[in-house]
Write a protein that binds this DNA or RNA. Sequence first.
RNA 1: GGCCCAUUCGUCUAGUGGUUAGGACGUAAGGUUUUCAUCCUUAAAACAGGAGUUCGAUUCUCCUAUGGGCUACCA
Length: 504
Amino acid sequence: MTENVRVRFAPSPTGPLHMGGVRTALFNYLFAKKHNGTFVLRIEDTDQTRYVANAEQYIIDSLDWCQIPFDEGPGRNEKFGPYRQSERKELYKKYADELIEKGWAYYAFDTADELNTHRKNHEENGKTFIYNWHNREKLQNSLALSAEEVSAKIAAGEKFVVRFKSPKDEILVLQDEIRGEIKIDSNLLDDKVLFKSDGMPTYHLANIVDDHLMEISHVIRGEEWLPSLALHVLLYRAFGWTAPKFAHLPLILKPVGKGKLSKRDGDKLGFPVFPLEYTNETTGDVSRGYKEDGYFPEAFVNMLSLLGWNPGTEQELFSLEELIQLFDLQRVSKSGAKFSPEKTQWFNEQYLQQKSDKELAGLYQPILVNNGISADAEYVEKVVGLIKERATFVADFWDLSNFFFVNPSEYDAKASKKQWKEGTPDLMKELVKVIDNIEDFSSENTEAKVKEWITAKEVGFGKVMQPLRLSLVGALKGPHLFDIISMIGKHATIDRINNAIATL
RNA sequence: GGCCCAUUCGUCUAGUGGUUAGGACGUAAGGUUUUCAUCCUUAAAACAGGAGUUCGAUUCUCCUAUGGGCUACCA
């Protein structure tokens, strides 16, 4: 298996790629890298009615952001190209014809209206209409019609599709890498359309032809494809090709309620379902993305990797390298996983804590600039070091550290009421003098000096420390007080205490 | 309706024919921090139900229930 592993991610460019799709791409990527294989991106744009122009670029941008780039695909290392099915259009006709010749497929002329009528009638009688062995002789197709009639219809320009002639009375034993053996009664299969009347193949045909031509060794895709597995295996057999191995990934479900995760859930529940922000070109609707919401790609990918897979140990934080080493299809779970926004935040927090103060400071700078602050890199780095353990996102930094850069503009009302007592202003005035006399303004020294004074003064620590914090921060929160004092310096410290005395 | 897949704490999951059924998120309670958060400790919390196989089933088989997917000239 280590030889020539080739996998593909084959999304349909009908809109932004959602996180379920990213997870499928990720598992393909991990599997490929683990086996020194190739990760192919193929664009399945056979449905011209649902095609969205900016979707392909969005997909590529998303994979890049997640740092799981494809090795082969549109515009990249095109050994088996083209990689857009619309550009391979001419190819599929030949294969459809081959199947007809071999007796594995046939022309069908039934119109959509006719079929809908059949379905409706069956439904009214409590039955299901299936286009297959039990009725195909009675419908408008090349199995029921004479060769002359068929030729005449085609010559007359009548629209037709090509359907697969699914076999009768056969128990198909299918193999899934994750689920094991699956048995299907071929009599229940319907004669799927392989080739549409618009000249395009359906997913089924294009998928099999391309996977074969692109020498795909493993098809790793979502569970929604499991019902089509029998058809796909049958198609390989009909062509006389060796089928790749198949693995069907469990679905990602809504955090609450029923069903699989959908775009609407994010809007409703307040979390992104897309990796990147996406603007719908026709409606102008903007959907939020993990990137724009402040998630690190590593955290997002780590979270995704554990949705439906785990290495069997208690480790939860993995670098991409580790994931590649550890990934194993055998350890992918069989049942759908409910997505957890809370745990996703936790992952981001973990990654944020791991990052260096320097890197985080760099990410913080633009936010500071937005708030009208220009501070030198070293100072910002120190600030980040003091506050990052309270943060989940870089975007939290400003709320947690604005007092390192600007004087408090207001004071927490509740805290003021509780901590700013009658004697406080006098005490603070005295404290100003104490602080003014401190030469060495290190955190340790200011702490020692102030505490010395408090002790000598014989007042409770809280009587001084709480109002002091209120004066400097504007609220009863934040890092060690003397770290703040040391950072903002003597002038700002005294200034802020005086401001508080004047205001409160 | 039909077909297929699945089912361990609220959630993600580990695990085994005999275990005190483990971890993580979240929740709660303590402790640390004379602030807040972090951090630490602790707690509550699960084998869907019923048969069968077996000395013994959460683990194997079957049935039921529940959940999910598919059932398009969409992918």
